[in-house]
Deep mutational scan, measured.
Amino acid sequence: PDEFRDPLMDTLMTDPVRLPSGTIMDRSIILRHLLNSPTDPFNRQTLTESMLEPVPELKEQIQAWMREKQN
């Protein structure tokens, strides 16, 4: 489902985090971005790792969907 895909890389998220802007991304992708630029890739506001907020409900939904697909 589209809501499980990272908006920057269009890959399935495994550890979704919410940026201060409200955008949800995969943690590994935003951390890689932050190594090059300490900004939100969508609005260029300053962004640090400590500002990332886990989204455990979405992570659980993704994991359940993945388990379902394996069966």
Rank of each mutant, 00 (worst) to 15 (best):
residue 9 M to Y: 12
residue 50 S to W: 08
residue 63 Q to N: 10
residue 20 P to I: 02
residue 42 F to V: 06
residue 11 T to W: 03
residue 56 P to T: 06
residue 66 M to H: 15
residue 45 Q to R: 10
residue 46 T to N: 15
residue 14 T to C: 10
residue 69 K to N: 15
residue 9 M to Q: 12
residue 12 L to M: 10
residue 4 F to H: 09
residue 36 N to Y: 13
residue 16 P to R: 00
residue 1 P to V: 01
residue 6 D to K: 01
residue 68 E to N: 05
residue 29 I to R: 02
residue 4 F to E: 09
residue 40 D to C: 03
residue 5 R to M: 12
residue 50 S to Y: 11
residue 38 P to W: 02
residue 65 W to T: 00
residue 25 M to K: 03
residue 68 E to D: 11
residue 57 E to G: 07
residue 67 R to T: 13
residue 31 L to E: 15
residue 12 L to G: 04
residue 45 Q to D: 11
residue 33 H to T: 06
residue 21 S to A: 09
residue 36 N to Q: 12
residue 57 E to Q: 13
residue 40 D to P: 03
residue 32 R to K: 15
residue 35 L to C: 14
residue 6 D to W: 01
residue 9 M to V: 08
residue 52 L to W: 01
residue 35 L to S: 14
residue 45 Q to E: 15
residue 19 L to T: 03
residue 8 L to T: 11
residue 59 K to S: 07
residue 39 T to E: 12
residue 66 M to T: 14
residue 55 V to L: 11
residue 58 L to F: 04
residue 70 Q to R: 12
residue 15 D to S: 06
residue 14 T to N: 11
residue 8 L to H: 04
residue 16 P to S: 01
residue 7 P to T: 08
residue 3 E to R: 08
residue 2 D to S: 11
residue 2 D to Y: 06
residue 14 T to R: 10
residue 17 V to Q: 03
residue 13 M to C: 02
residue 28 S to Y: 05
residue 22 G to K: 00
residue 5 R to S: 06
residue 67 R to S: 10
residue 17 V to R: 02
residue 51 M to F: 05
residue 19 L to N: 04
residue 21 S to T: 06
residue 41 P to V: 06
residue 28 S to P: 12
residue 16 P to K: 04
residue 7 P to S: 06
residue 6 D to N: 04
residue 33 H to E: 08
residue 7 P to K: 05
residue 49 E to G: 08
residue 28 S to T: 15
residue 14 T to V: 11
residue 7 P to Q: 04
residue 61 Q to S: 11
residue 7 P to C: 02
residue 20 P to Y: 01
residue 48 T to Y: 04
residue 52 L to Y: 03
residue 51 M to P: 02
residue 25 M to Q: 01
residue 18 R to M: 09
residue 30 I to C: 00
residue 1 P to S: 05
residue 30 I to S: 03
residue 46 T to C: 11
residue 62 I to E: 08
residue 50 S to Q: 13
residue 6 D to V: 01
residue 17 V to P: 01
residue 33 H to R: 08
residue 15 D to Q: 01
residue 12 L to Y: 05
residue 7 P to E: 05
residue 36 N to R: 15
residue 28 S to A: 15
residue 47 L to F: 02
residue 40 D to Y: 05
residue 66 M to A: 12
residue 9 M to A: 13
residue 49 E to W: 06
residue 53 E to M: 06
residue 13 M to W: 01
residue 25 M to S: 05
residue 43 N to T: 15
residue 36 N to W: 12
residue 45 Q to F: 06
residue 38 P to L: 07
residue 67 R to C: 10
residue 20 P to T: 00
residue 11 T to H: 04
residue 62 I to R: 02
residue 62 I to L: 03
residue 41 P to H: 02
residue 6 D to S: 00
residue 28 S to K: 15
residue 2 D to A: 14
residue 27 R to S: 02
residue 68 E to A: 12
residue 55 V to P: 03
residue 38 P to Q: 14
residue 25 M to N: 11
residue 57 E to R: 11
residue 55 V to I: 09
residue 70 Q to L: 14
residue 51 M to W: 10
residue 13 M to Q: 02
residue 53 E to Y: 09
residue 45 Q to M: 13
residue 71 N to R: 12
residue 32 R to V: 08
residue 4 F to T: 05
residue 2 D to H: 09
residue 62 I to T: 07
residue 63 Q to H: 15
residue 38 P to D: 15
residue 30 I to A: 09
residue 40 D to H: 04
residue 14 T to Y: 12
residue 40 D to S: 00
residue 32 R to H: 12
residue 38 P to R: 11
residue 51 M to K: 02
residue 42 F to N: 00
residue 12 L to S: 12
residue 65 W to F: 10
residue 12 L to R: 04
residue 2 D to I: 14
residue 10 D to P: 00
residue 44 R to E: 14
residue 54 P to W: 03
residue 31 L to G: 06
residue 4 F to S: 03
residue 36 N to A: 09
residue 40 D to L: 01
residue 4 F to P: 07
residue 13 M to G: 06
residue 69 K to L: 06
residue 14 T to I: 14
residue 49 E to R: 10
residue 33 H to S: 08
residue 23 T to A: 13
residue 24 I to K: 02
residue 7 P to Y: 02
residue 64 A to N: 13
residue 6 D to M: 00
residue 4 F to D: 05
residue 54 P to M: 01
residue 47 L to P: 06
residue 24 I to P: 00
residue 6 D to Q: 00
residue 4 F to Q: 05
residue 30 I to W: 00
residue 71 N to M: 14
residue 56 P to E: 11
residue 24 I to V: 15
residue 22 G to Y: 00
residue 56 P to C: 13
residue 71 N to V: 15
residue 27 R to C: 02
residue 6 D to P: 03
residue 31 L to S: 13
residue 17 V to D: 04
residue 57 E to D: 12
residue 39 T to G: 02
residue 16 P to M: 01
residue 63 Q to G: 11
residue 56 P to A: 08
residue 64 A to S: 13
residue 22 G to V: 01
residue 57 E to K: 11
residue 49 E to D: 15
residue 5 R to I: 14
residue 22 G to E: 04
residue 33 H to P: 04
residue 46 T to A: 13
residue 52 L to M: 05
residue 12 L to T: 00
residue 6 D to G: 01
residue 3 E to H: 08
residue 11 T to R: 07
residue 6 D to R: 00
residue 34 L to T: 07
residue 29 I to V: 15
residue 19 L to V: 03
residue 21 S to F: 03
residue 47 L to Q: 02
residue 9 M to P: 05
residue 51 M to T: 09
residue 43 N to A: 07
residue 29 I to L: 06
residue 46 T to S: 12
residue 57 E to F: 09
residue 71 N to E: 14
residue 57 E to M: 11
residue 54 P to C: 03
residue 10 D to N: 10
residue 70 Q to N: 13
residue 41 P to G: 04
residue 8 L to R: 02
residue 52 L to A: 01
residue 4 F to K: 05
residue 36 N to F: 12
residue 62 I to S: 04
residue 61 Q to G: 09
residue 55 V to W: 11
residue 13 M to E: 03
residue 30 I to E: 05
residue 66 M to P: 03
residue 70 Q to P: 15
residue 40 D to K: 01
residue 47 L to G: 00
residue 68 E to Y: 06
residue 64 A to M: 12
residue 44 R to F: 14
residue 24 I to E: 09
residue 62 I to D: 03
residue 12 L to V: 15
residue 47 L to T: 04
residue 52 L to R: 01
residue 54 P to D: 04
residue 28 S to C: 14
residue 54 P to V: 01
residue 19 L to K: 03
residue 40 D to Q: 02
residue 28 S to N: 13
residue 65 W to V: 08
residue 16 P to E: 03
residue 53 E to P: 00
residue 71 N to D: 15
residue 67 R to Q: 09
residue 10 D to R: 11
residue 58 L to H: 00
residue 43 N to G: 08
residue 14 T to F: 11
residue 63 Q to K: 14
residue 1 P to I: 07
residue 49 E to A: 14
residue 18 R to L: 05
residue 49 E to Y: 08
residue 44 R to A: 13
residue 41 P to I: 07
residue 42 F to K: 10
residue 26 D to E: 12
residue 65 W to S: 05
residue 12 L to W: 02
residue 24 I to H: 05
residue 29 I to Y: 05
residue 45 Q to A: 13
residue 64 A to D: 14
residue 70 Q to M: 06
residue 9 M to N: 15
residue 31 L to R: 12
residue 31 L to N: 15
residue 23 T to W: 11
residue 63 Q to W: 11
residue 33 H to Y: 09
residue 33 H to W: 13
residue 18 R to S: 06
residue 34 L to G: 03
residue 3 E to F: 04
residue 15 D to K: 01
residue 53 E to Q: 14
residue 12 L to F: 10
residue 2 D to F: 07
residue 29 I to K: 00
residue 40 D to M: 00
residue 67 R to I: 12
residue 67 R to K: 14
residue 62 I to V: 09
residue 57 E to A: 13
residue 44 R to L: 13
residue 51 M to S: 08
residue 21 S to W: 00
residue 61 Q to E: 11
residue 51 M to A: 08
residue 11 T to N: 12
residue 71 N to C: 08
residue 66 M to L: 15
residue 71 N to W: 15
residue 23 T to K: 15
residue 42 F to I: 12
residue 32 R to P: 00
residue 39 T to Q: 11
residue 58 L to D: 08
residue 57 E to I: 01
residue 28 S to F: 04
residue 37 S to D: 11
residue 67 R to E: 14
residue 34 L to F: 10
residue 71 N to I: 15
residue 52 L to Q: 11
residue 61 Q to R: 14
residue 55 V to F: 04
residue 32 R to C: 15
residue 29 I to P: 01
residue 25 M to C: 08
residue 6 D to Y: 08
residue 62 I to P: 08
residue 20 P to Q: 00
residue 68 E to L: 12
residue 33 H to K: 03
residue 57 E to H: 12
residue 43 N to Q: 08
residue 52 L to T: 01
residue 22 G to Q: 03
residue 54 P to R: 04
residue 20 P to K: 04
residue 56 P to I: 01
residue 33 H to A: 06
residue 9 M to T: 09
residue 49 E to H: 01
residue 39 T to Y: 15
residue 33 H to F: 05
residue 5 R to N: 07
residue 51 M to H: 09
residue 17 V to G: 00
residue 12 L to D: 08
residue 9 M to S: 14
residue 63 Q to L: 12
residue 13 M to A: 11
residue 23 T to V: 14
residue 24 I to N: 01
residue 9 M to H: 09
residue 23 T to P: 06
residue 16 P to Y: 01
residue 11 T to S: 13
residue 30 I to L: 06
residue 1 P to M: 10
residue 58 L to P: 00
residue 36 N to E: 13
residue 51 M to V: 10
residue 47 L to K: 05
residue 5 R to A: 05
residue 21 S to R: 01
residue 37 S to T: 07
residue 64 A to Y: 08
residue 41 P to C: 04
residue 47 L to E: 04
residue 18 R to K: 14
residue 42 F to L: 11
residue 2 D to V: 14
residue 5 R to F: 11
residue 33 H to G: 01
residue 26 D to H: 03
residue 22 G to P: 01
residue 39 T to I: 05
residue 44 R to M: 15
residue 45 Q to S: 12
residue 44 R to K: 14
residue 31 L to D: 06
residue 6 D to T: 00
residue 66 M to G: 12
residue 55 V to A: 06
residue 34 L to C: 04
residue 45 Q to N: 08
residue 31 L to M: 08
residue 47 L to C: 13
residue 10 D to W: 02
residue 33 H to V: 03
residue 49 E to P: 10
residue 8 L to D: 03
residue 24 I to L: 02
residue 66 M to C: 15
residue 56 P to W: 04
residue 14 T to E: 15
residue 18 R to I: 01
residue 38 P to E: 05
residue 41 P to K: 02
residue 21 S to G: 10
residue 23 T to H: 12
residue 1 P to G: 07
